[in-house]
Computed example of a mutant assay.
Amino acid sequence: MNITKYRDSLIHFIYPVSRFFARLGITPNQITLLSLLFGMGSAVLYAYQYAYFAAGMLLLSALFDFIDGGVARINNKKSRFGAAIDWIADKYVDGLVLIGIAFSGLVNPGIAAIAIFGSMMNTFIKPVVYAEIGFDKKEDGKIKDPLESVGIFGRPETVITLIVLSCLNHVDWAVIVIALMTNFSALQRVFYLYRNRTRY
């Protein structure tokens, strides 16, 4: 699926919301913090089996994560620190939500552990490639590299799967899908690097 490669197109749809927050004077890093707090709230709600409310909190977390970059562009407050914190906050949310689900009893903890591993590895591959191969070209504060369009299941797909299947009362299915697809996506990226190793 790889929704990430359509990120630039999707930004236009949420631009009015970003502009609203930009006018309020809220900084991008403050919005990132809000995203993290909503994500933590979602994790707690999942742990107590309030799946519907947890999905709602996760949706709010994802929306704030999406608009912080827009606010940074509108107010010309892009920074390397902000980009790094945004990335770190995203992975904290992903990990905490899956840990919350693991503690809830809604899914086998072993499957949740595989999902956490896949989620982290799917993302971990990118900074390793940046460091070892040296991708450093940025557009709107984001590094642009070939891996952006490689892999069919990333963070957007993970969040959407959790929200939709939680609303359908199938949190267990969501975690199974995430466990399978994030690890498969990570392997796709490794295979891509192997096939194109002579180019780098």
Score class of each variant (00 low, 15 high):
8 D>T: 04
8 D>F: 12
9 S>A: 13
12 H>M: 04
15 Y>R: 04
21 F>N: 08
21 F>V: 05
22 A>G: 04
23 R>T: 09
27 T>W: 00
33 L>F: 10
37 L>W: 06
42 S>R: 12
47 A>S: 15
48 Y>R: 14
53 F>H: 06
57 M>S: 04
60 L>Y: 08
61 S>V: 07
64 F>K: 07
68 D>I: 02
73 R>Q: 01
76 N>G: 11
76 N>C: 04
77 K>Q: 12
78 K>Q: 15
80 R>K: 14
88 I>L: 15
88 I>N: 14
90 D>Q: 09
95 G>Q: 06
96 L>E: 07
97 V>M: 08
102 A>G: 10
103 F>S: 07
105 G>T: 14
108 N>S: 14
108 N>G: 09
113 A>I: 09
120 M>R: 02
124 F>A: 15
125 I>R: 07
125 I>Y: 00
129 V>N: 10
132 E>S: 14
133 I>F: 03
133 I>H: 02
134 G>H: 06
138 K>D: 09
139 E>Y: 02
140 D>F: 03
141 G>F: 05
142 K>Q: 14
143 I>C: 10
143 I>N: 00
148 E>M: 02
148 E>C: 08
152 I>D: 08
155 R>Y: 09
160 I>F: 06
163 I>N: 06
165 L>T: 09
165 L>M: 13
167 C>Q: 06
168 L>E: 11
168 L>Y: 13
169 N>M: 05
169 N>K: 15
171 V>I: 15
176 I>A: 08
176 I>Y: 07
181 M>V: 07
185 S>C: 05
186 A>G: 10
195 R>W: 01
198 T>G: 00
200 Y>I: 03
200 Y>S: 06
